[in-house]
Simulated assay, not measured.
Amino acid sequence: MTHSLEKLPVLCIGSVLWDIIGRSSSAMRQGSDVPGRITRVPGGVAMNIAMALARFDVPCELLSAVGRDAAGDGLLAQARARGLGVAHLYRSEDLPTDSYMAIEGANGLIAAIADAHSLEQAGDKILRALEHGPLGTVQAPFGGTIALDGNLTLDLLRRIAKSAIFARADLRVAPASPGKAERLAPFFGHAGTTFYVNLEEAGLLCHSGFDSAQTAARAMVERGATRALVTDGGKAAAFATADLCLVQTPPPVLVARVTGAGDTFMAAHIAAERNAAAPDIALSAALTAAAAYVSGETPL
């Protein structure tokens, strides 16, 4: 599958919310009570991808639901300051701005809760600009890249997989979390879809257990993915199509943060392909960018 440089913005569809992250340099387990830092930053899969794309000078537009509340106003101000397109966000009078809370220790993500209920309740209202313009219509569907996350409801994702307004798009999908991985099953067999998943998510989507990203990526393609990228933390990652499978190991780094690493990987891969990078170069660029993010070198 060849991806040429596009002038159209990347549309980032999914969660746009506030991340509240507690991080400690100590290893943690259930019941741990340790010193650390608590931060509140813009987040959500779609927002994280868009912010990472902006760091690679890739224009993007957010399609999501944000409340008409103080939290929503602050979130939009942060998005604008980063150069993200927010003109087509659905802003509800009744639904509050969503949020995400996570605890991270030296041994990785300990626990997280995603409150994306407003996004789920907004439903297809977030897609109005794709159906009725100016981003596209049923008669003239959007023909650029769309990054779609699994925080949408299963019903809406099923409808998107069959919708004419997505028929021409270069569709990139990510599950948001293992708990939502199976929501992406409708995109198996959808021509031109690229999956970005970790090893656990690949196993859930394929109803199987895998011992390597390479095995998982091949299984994703056999299941119906046009292309699949599978990561496995600091271990080897894989990119697979029907006639190609690449395996690369990410640069070793000290882990400073976890939340958002997969989104950075996806954005870096999209950015590299927009610059016509070969598959091996694009995979390497994505792994390098994700490693820099995990190490804390990349600013939030």
Rank of each mutant, 00 (worst) to 15 (best):
H3M: 13
S4K: 13
L5R: 14
E6D: 07
K7V: 13
V10P: 04
I20P: 00
G22M: 06
S25W: 02
S26G: 00
G31V: 12
S32G: 14
R40H: 09
R40W: 06
G43A: 07
A46M: 05
N48D: 04
A50L: 00
L53Y: 04
A54S: 15
A54Q: 13
P59G: 05
P59W: 01
A65Q: 13
G67H: 06
G74L: 05
Q78M: 14
R80P: 10
R82K: 14
L84N: 11
D94M: 10
L95E: 07
P96A: 12
I103A: 15
A106F: 10
G108N: 00
I113Y: 09
E120S: 07
K125S: 11
R128T: 14
L130Q: 08
A140R: 11
L148V: 10
L156K: 09
L157R: 11
R159Q: 15
D170L: 15
V173Y: 00
P175E: 05
S177Q: 12
G179E: 14
E182H: 10
R183Y: 09
R183S: 10
L184K: 11
F187G: 12
G189T: 11
G189Q: 12
T193I: 08
T194F: 10
F195P: 07
E200Q: 13
G203N: 08
A217P: 04
E222A: 14
R223V: 07
A225W: 01
R227Q: 13
T231L: 06
D232Y: 00
G233P: 05
G234Q: 11
K235M: 08
A237P: 04
A237I: 06
A238P: 00
L244P: 01
Q248N: 04
V253D: 01
V258H: 06
T259M: 01
A261V: 03
G262M: 07
A268C: 03
A271H: 07
E273G: 00
A278P: 13
D280E: 15
D280P: 07
A286L: 04
L287E: 12
V294Q: 02
G296K: 00
G296H: 04
L300D: 12
